Simulated scan of single mutants.
Amino acid sequence: MTAEPHHLKRLGLTGSIGAGKSTVAALLRARGLTVLDADEQARLVTQEGSVLAELNTAFPGVVVGGALDRAALAARVFPDASALARLNAITHPRVRERMLALEREAAARGESWVVQDVPLLYEGGLDAGMDAVLVVDAPLELRVSRVMARSGLTREEVLSREARQLPAAEKRRRATRVLDNSGSRADLERQLDAALADLGVTGRAARDD
């Protein structure tokens, strides 16, 4: 295992489905912070030929024309905990390696903090490697309505995905700071800026001044 980068602190970013984590990630980038998106890295991993071959062996039919049929894979693994575990065993180690490589690049640029945007941060036990964790939250019904509006999922499908995650209340309990995204964007930005100030988190722009 390659050594982790020195002198680099990790700010974990997570939240339940529909909470607005992506909005906060964009705000963090706007503040000069490097945000490493675990979902984005997972998509890149599943474009690799060796990974596609493993996925097609584990889940025959999910690779079509040399590309992953993500909808078919989701339909296969989400209702089946053992299938999801097989998927994670294939992809997660590779995603972690990619995230670590990106952290080394940030450390080489002289950055002191990097944000790890990980939907299942607590579920994967990755919070243990974070120096602080921001949890984005909003009331359940608001979150469900957001996801239904943007994704076309039914209420039952959203609730099913919600049920497979750590309860929102437990995420809030474990968080270093909680951002309540039930109000205006301006209110969310105020909360974020206060949290970053309290934690001493600064981005590239602030350090270059």
Rank of each mutant, 00 (worst) to 15 (best):
D137A: 15
R161F: 00
T91G: 05
D198P: 01
S145C: 04
A81C: 04
D198H: 12
L196M: 04
N88L: 03
L87R: 12
R190L: 09
R70Q: 09
L166T: 08
D208G: 05
L159K: 09
V158T: 07
T91V: 15
A3C: 10
E54Y: 02
L188C: 02
D37I: 05
I90A: 10
A81Y: 06
D198N: 04
R109M: 12
G66I: 04
V114A: 14
R185N: 00
M148R: 10
V201H: 08
I17R: 08
T202M: 08
R76P: 01
V135E: 02
G65M: 09
A106N: 09
L8Y: 11
V64C: 11
L166Q: 09
E105V: 14
D80T: 03
L73G: 07
E48K: 11
G110N: 11
G12Q: 06
V35S: 10
I17P: 06
G15Y: 01
R86T: 15
T14Y: 04
L55D: 07
D137I: 00
E40H: 14
R146P: 00
N88M: 11
L84Y: 05
G20F: 02
L166W: 07
R150Y: 00
G124E: 14
D180T: 07
L36F: 05
R207K: 09
T57D: 13
E48A: 13
L140V: 14
A195K: 05
L159V: 02
R98P: 00
R173H: 04
D117Q: 10
L73S: 06
A101L: 14
L73H: 08
H7P: 02
P5D: 12
P139M: 11
A74I: 04
N181V: 00
K9M: 10
G18L: 05
R161S: 00
G61K: 14
L87N: 07
R146T: 01
S82G: 06
Y122I: 07
D39Y: 00
E48Q: 15
L126G: 10
R155M: 00
A38G: 09
H7Q: 15
G49N: 07
R109E: 14
E103Y: 10
V62M: 12
L8I: 08
P119G: 08
P93R: 13
